[in-house]
Amino acid sequence: MTFEPEELRQSRTDLADTLKTLRKRAGITQTRLAQRCNMSQTKISNIEGAKLTPSLVDVELILRALEAPSNLVSQVAALARTANTEWQDVWSQRRTGLEKKQNELAGFERSSTEFRYFLLSMVTGLLATPEYVRASLAHIPGDHSRAIARKLERQSALYDTSKRFTFILTEQAVRWPFLPAPAMAMQIDRLASISLLPNVRLGIIPFDTHVPVGPLNTFTIYDTRIATVETQTGAMIFRDHRDVSAYLDEFTAYEGFALFGEKCRERLSEWANQLRS
């Protein structure tokens, strides 16, 4: 499904207006609807006021309580799916400050306990050395010292044993020459070191592995609630359970092709030593 940024913003308002109109047509008060859906009246009010974006489950409960016809249910469900998708373009992120994006990611990390990262072409900030982090922002004009510091601060989440991380990196993500050879060797050493943490599973998919599926994007899954998908010009944030489930299935497939544990560390050591020689 393709989403235009304006469509995503408008869909939230359209969904709120649609649900409010359906309730009024049914002649039901917010309080009565809340009782039927086992929600608070405040939640219904916030949904109808576009202050809160309802999940698909919330929408299904409301439509069932309003006895909406089946053809209308499918239309509103599609609208709800779009409303539960967010587009963040890189230019807006730069205007508002890269530190704000780091704070948002830190919020995802605080509120989640299980993380899955599929890294197609680069190392993510949680796994990066300071040199790699600085290089990842060097092409963007301006002073990014605060964003860099925040990125490095976020790495403390890896040492919170109440959280579980699974990272899958392609060989390209590990070996792309983003830094001079000695610094890249140190970056690969860091990956091997992090793989030893008790709450971290780090796997790699080497080029000599037969993988009969082709990944298109880097993506991250937070618990089973949110999936973020990165593109060249921004990121999509999915909250619809069907979208999140699709990325969970894709991640599970890649896990089956990845090397973990000692096999992973042996290959990482081989690549780091090649860079040093």
Rank of each mutant, 00 (worst) to 15 (best):
L98A: 02
I28L: 04
V244W: 00
K51F: 14
I237E: 08
A227T: 05
Y132H: 08
Q41T: 13
A272K: 06
E67G: 08
Q274F: 12
P177Q: 10
D17V: 09
F165V: 07
V123P: 02
G27C: 07
T161H: 11
A272I: 05
A183W: 14
E86H: 13
F178M: 14
R201N: 00
V174K: 08
C264M: 07
L259N: 02
L66P: 10
D189Y: 08
H210S: 13
Y117M: 00
M39E: 06
I221N: 00
V200E: 07
N273Y: 11
L33K: 08
S193V: 06
E255M: 09
L33P: 10
G203V: 04
D249W: 06
S136I: 01
S156A: 15
T161K: 11
M236V: 10
V229M: 07
P69F: 06
F260V: 01
I44L: 04
G142W: 04
C264H: 06
H210K: 11
A147Y: 06
E262T: 12
V200D: 03
R134I: 05
T224M: 09
G214M: 14
C264L: 06
F257K: 03
N103F: 12
Q75T: 09
D58V: 10
T13W: 06
T170P: 02
L152D: 05
T170F: 00
T21R: 15
Y254R: 02
V133Y: 01
A258V: 03
T18K: 13
S11C: 03
G27S: 11
D143L: 01
I237Y: 07
A50V: 03
I168F: 00
Q41D: 15
P215N: 02
R134G: 03
F167E: 00
E131C: 03
M184Q: 08
A149T: 11
M39H: 05
A192R: 07
S40R: 04
I44Q: 07
K263C: 13
Q75S: 08
E262I: 09
Q41K: 13
T124K: 11
E255H: 00
A173D: 04
S156V: 13
S145F: 05
M236F: 14
L152A: 08
Q172V: 07
L127D: 00
T166P: 02
L259H: 07
F108I: 02
S74P: 09
P54Y: 01
R150A: 15
Q102F: 05
T129F: 06
E171F: 06
C264P: 03
L275S: 06
